[in-house]
Design a binder for these strands. Structure first.
Length: 295
DNA sequence: TGAATTGTTATCGT
DNA sequence: AACGATAACAATTC
């Protein structure tokens, strides 16, 4: 399940082989992945040279020499591979698309579950406009995070997963960041104190950076070189002892997502999110600063 | 066999 | 009206 660190790793690994190469042709073996259409992507890419390979959130961004762009989103099971000149594409690897390059090599797009997407745009792709802040960029500060949280009354986990707010976190790194910050995933975003916001900000950045440094997580994902799975502290560790306090890690469901916490290190402080609206508004009025909030 | 998997979007409700 | 919560969906694996 590629999230920000995995996508970043892929971009770094494929950049040298792609930038400067001209795309001879694009072939799709699964029509529905291509947007606006297979033909549209083919026409847009034909004979264009790749000028840059970058990442925005979980999108891989190919910049073209005519100002166009195309995005690849790996979703759940997408991955890249190479085929050398003359080499036949593997049929068991679920190759859904191929880019033939001017050096004779082919970039392969594997995607067992067919959830991945390839989106072409003749100018800058408008898909990117809906994305929130890049958590590793300098503009993402503790005070910005504080504003993002305080402006909403929403459980922390679904908020962190919302790509229009903060872009790039997925299920694994969200659980890890909340654990490192000592915050329960159901904590209401407007009940997170200043100190906790700073902790969460630091935890998000630290866990993403560590993920990148370790070349990503390779749990149920084919990407071979990742090591981060050996350093996860809650994700996939249900029943195992917390590395801080020894308590058993607990699995729960938050917003239809499998979620992992240490019940001792991540206590649920304020649960205004599940209180009746009347009670909540009274609670807010009566306490200029809320009675209970996560610090 | 069906439950689990995830990011995005459409829809419902307040 | 705007926001938040929830359901649906894509398709496959074990």
């Amino acid at each position: 399940m590629p999230e920000l660190p995995e996508v970043e790793t892929i971009v770094r690994n494929y950049r040298d082989g792609l930038v400067g190469r001209r795309i001879v042709r694009f072939t799709s073996h699964w029509a529905r992945q291509a947007s606006p259409s297979v033909r549209g992507v083919q026409n847009g890419l034909r004979n264009r040279t790749i000028t840059a390979l970058t990442r925005r959130a979980k999108f891989i961004v190919f910049s073209l020499d005519d100002g166009g762009q195309f995005l690849v989103h790996l979703r759940m099971s997408g991955s890249f591979g190479w085929a050398m000149p003359g080499e036949i594409s593997p049929t068991d690897g679920h190759v859904r698309a191929e880019w033939l390059l001017d050096d004779g090599r082919r970039l392969l797009f594997h995607d067992a579950r067919k959830f991945g997407r390839i989106i072409y745009s003749r100018a800058r792709a408008e898909t990117l406009d809906h994305l929130g802040v890049e958590p590793l960029e300098a503009s993402f500060t503790p005070s910005m995070l504080h504003q993002l949280l305080a402006a909403r009354r929403r459980a922390l986990k679904p908020l962190l997963l919302d790509q229009t707010v903060i872009a790039g976190l997925g299920n694994i790194y969200t659980d890890e960041a909340l654990y490192r910050a000592g915050l329960h995933p159901l904590t209401s975003s407007d009940c997170v104190g200043e100190q906790a916001v700073r902790r969460l900000h630091g935890a998000i950045r630290a866990v993403l950076r560590e993920g990148i440094r370790r070349n990503g997580t390779s749990i149920d994902w084919i990407y071979p070189s990742g090591q981060m799975q050996d350093y996860l502290r809650v994700y996939g560790r249900t029943g195992k002892p917390c590395r801080t306090c020894g308590q058993a890690i607990v699995a729960l469901r938050v917003g239809q997502r499998g979620t992992h916490i240490c019940p001792r290190c991540q206590p649920l402080v304020a649960r205004t999110g599940s209180l009746p609206a009347v009670t909540k508004s009274r609670l807010r009025r009566n306490s200029g600063r809320r009675a209970a909030y996560a610090t």
